[in-house]
Nucleic acid binder design. Structure first.
Length: 116
DNA sequence: GGAGTGACGCGGC
DNA sequence: AGCCGCGCCACTC
């Protein structure tokens, strides 16, 4: 019945909203947290529609290399970088410095979490 | 309905 | 260690 893929999109947005300020994660990490490590591209595609939600900090989502691959999709060419730097994340050459230090691992939304 | 594309990731060379 | 190519999944033409 309904909600199949759309539910996946909502999960992506919900997960991105949980990204704390000053932190960032990758598309693959989100996809993996949702149980679909191979759907990393779909996550990126979902982020493309994130403009419908102003609660989704898409600027905190970068690729596995910490590169701001989606910066071109923002209002300004340097909007994404500016937002990250405003949160204390150093960005140079469209790439996050010490990305692993700012890397945020998303919680597994398998359904039964009850963990802490 | 087949073919191409994309805000990715990984393996091979 | 960097460059090239393939795979995956959803969407559009």
């Amino acid at each position: 019945m309904g909600k199949d893929k759309q539910d996946f999109f909502e999960k992506v947005y919900d997960l991105v909203r949980q990204i704390p300020k000053g932190k960032a994660t990758s598309y693959g990490a989100i996809a993996k947290a949702l149980g679909a490590p191979k759907s990393s591209r779909v996550v990126g595609y979902a982020m493309n529609h994130s403009h419908t939600y102003d609660d989704v900090p898409a600027h905190r989502v970068v690729n596995r290399n910490g590169v701001l691959t989606g910066k071109h999709h923002f209002s300004a060419s340097d909007a994404m970088q500016r937002l990250l730097e405003d949160e204390g994340i150093k960005v140079e050459n469209d790439q996050i410095i010490n990305f692993e230090k700012h890397f945020w691992i998303p919680p597994l939304s398998t359904g039964n979490d009850s963990e802490n």
